[in-house]
């Protein structure tokens, strides 16, 4: 009978489930991308070496302090509370209701940005000091060094952590139902509210969440492997001797 109910619920509500899942995916994808960009910018700023004196030193310290507050605030409070504060706060401050989807993307983005900036910073400081020195010795400034040498390596290294943020976002967007965004949790709640079959409805939702997170994880694995790919191309050009080395290198990158 539960199984029957499952079938009925799916049959009657599949467009709503799919739209919910689509909205969840949309919010978490855009949120993760924008959050990663925010994290990248902040990570670069927070690794600028502080000059010993002068106006620039004061300015940089001030910027760093503000960024620290931002990071602490968003990592130290639940996203569900941030959603309420930002959504209702903006209505109070500007006198109009934000579009709920825009608000949702905004919240996920800045929340992810706070986590990503620490991940990016970790990725940057884990790059060998020699890479910075070689770039500086050639005459590159901090931003040239970052863009041309350090970030490409850091991004490769933090890709697993970024994928992890994406997966977390897929799950955590469910808290945005408090501002009535029509993501999967919110949709499921409406469905269950109509048919009073809470278990069956949310069981369907849980399967959909699992499919999304599982697929995203697989895709990211594939991208990682793809990024490591060009090695093989070079080796063909270079003869056999090199092929021996690849498995060792791949191991290390894990």
């Amino acid at each position: 009978m539960t199984l029957d109910w499952l079938m009925i619920i799916i049959k009657e509500n599949w467009p709503m489930f799919l739209r919910g899942a689509g909205m969840t995916l949309l919010i978490s994808l855009i949120g993760t991308v924008i959050g990663s960009i925010i994290g990248m910018l902040i990570g670069v700023i927070r690794t600028i070496p502080v000059p010993e004196e002068g106006v620039k030193r004061g300015l940089l310290k001030l910027v760093n302090a503000i960024l620290s507050i931002y990071i602490e605030f968003f990592r130290g409070t639940p996203m569900i509370v941030q959603a309420m504060v930002i959504y209702y706060g903006s209505a109070l401050a500007f006198g109009f209701d934000m579009d709920r989807v825009v608000a949702a993307i905004f919240i996920v983005s800045i929340n992810t940005g706070a986590y990503m900036s620490e991940i990016v910073r970790g990725g940057i400081v884990s790059i060998d000091k020699g890479q910075f020195e070689a770039a500086h010795a050639i005459g590159m400034n901090h931003f040239q060094t970052m863009i041309n040498v350090v970030l490409p390596q850091a991004i490769r290294n933090i890709l697993p952590a970024t994928g992890n943020e994406f997966v977390i976002n897929i799950k955590d967007t469910s808290v945005l139902n408090v501002i009535s965004v029509s993501e999967l949790f919110f949709q499921t709640k409406s469905i269950a509210g109509n048919n009073f079959r809470y278990f069956e409805s949310f069981f369907v939702a849980s399967v959909l969440y699992l499919i999304m997170t599982f697929t995203v994880t697989r895709i990211l694995r594939y991208v990682e492997r793809k990024l490591d790919g060009p090695d093989n191309y070079d080796m063909i050009m270079m003869g056999n001797q090199m092929q021996v080395e690849t498995p060792v290198i791949k191991e290390k990158n894990r």
């Binding site: 020699g130 020195e133 070689a134 010795a137 390596q153």
Partner: peptide, 13 residues
């Protein structure tokens, strides 16, 4: 000024 390091420091990327 060019610099050649003990540890090479080629850009890995």
């Amino acid at each position: 000024l060019g610099m050649v390091f003990q540890q090479f420091n080629l850009f890995n990327n």
